[in-house]
Design a protein around this nucleic acid. Structure first.
Length: 282
DNA sequence: AATCGCGCCTGACGGC
DNA sequence: TGCCGTCAGGCGCGAT
């Protein structure tokens, strides 16, 4: 890690982390030809096809983009789709670096650098598609990007009418809006003063406007932090402290609410932990 | 159409 | 020291 840049991630990759990783790897892989693919384990969330290596070998990465939490390495003949799941990591290493546990996949580039995918839990996935991205089943039907204009109060208001689903689960549905994970859902709802269990269809246009601003704010704040630590990484000082998120309620069960002091509550919603303040959020 | 619960998986952690 | 149960969760999918 002294001579090379290395994008590693300590916590689960939420959208700001994925965007930071995108910016980190882009200058290192863009314009490079993938001369070899090393597959050590096909058994990811979506099993790697037998043809994956032969399809990808010889492709040149033209651009690195992102859709939600999917990283997209765009090549002439198609696109490599990478999702980091819960525990996926990407790193750039000199080709030939000895693999460690859970190093499932390498892309070896023409400059003798290697993009390596490591994922202990294997909730992540790596896919190749030659079709237009809009037609890929995992990408078709996704909602707008949270940091773009397509996410606004009027949009959430319209999509939520007559829906009984709890608002937290509503905003975590990638068909409504992409990239809002469990942590930032709790944080944004706290900022907006909205109770996470409130039915999505029973929130006013005004309050959806506030919620959207809160979502954009927490994501931008995290992105700013990622950008800061990304510079540290690319200076390769070995600083492992990555994304010390400024969380106000997530993981704070029983601790005083930062606004009113009442204990933060933890509940389960759809097999996910939700944290909120019962006084500040209605 | 909307909603609910399942399952994938490893590692961290607490209790004994 | 080790074993075992619990929890953590992104997200697509099948059932209702």
């Amino acid at each position: 890690m002294k001579a090379t840049s290395n994008c590693e991630e300590e916590t689960m990759p939420e959208l700001p982390e994925v965007e930071t990783i995108r910016r980190c790897i882009m200058p290192l892989v863009q314009g490079r030809e993938i001369v070899r693919v090393v597959v050590r384990n096909r058994d990811l969330r979506w099993p790697l096809s037998n043809q994956f290596a032969s399809r990808v070998t010889g492709q040149t990465v033209q651009a690195v983009s992102r859709r939600g939490k999917y990283l997209l390495l765009r090549c002439v003949a198609g696109t490599i789709i990478i999702h980091l799941g819960m525990s996926g990591k990407l790193s750039i290493l000199p080709a030939g670096t000895a693999p460690v546990k859970h190093d499932h996949l390498d892309f070896v580039f023409s400059n003798n650098q290697c993009l390596r995918f490591n994922d202990p839990r294997r909730f992540g996935s790596v896919l190749w598609t030659a079709k237009p991205l809009a037609e890929h089943p995992l990408l078709a039907g996704l909602g707008p990007e949270p940091l773009e204009a397509g996410l606004n109060g009027a949009y959430l208001y319209r999509r939520s009418r007559r829906r009984q689903l709890a608002v937290k689960q509503f905003i975590m549905d990638s068909h409504i809006v992409v990239g809002i994970g469990n942590i930032y859902a709790s944080e944004a709802l706290f900022s907006a003063g909205i109770h996470p269990a409130r039915p999505a269809g029973r929130i006013s246009l005004l309050r959806y406007g506030r919620l959207v601003e809160a979502i954009k704010q927490v994501l931008r704040d995290a992105l700013r932090q990622g950008g800061t630590t990304l510079r540290d990484f690319c200076d390769s000082n070995g600083n492992p402290g990555y994304f010390q998120l400024m969380l106000r309620v997530y993981g704070h069960a029983g601790q005083p609410c930062p606004v009113c002091g009442r204990p933060i509550q933890q509940v389960r919603q759809g097999q996910r932990s939700t944290y909120f303040c019962g006084r500040c959020q209605r």
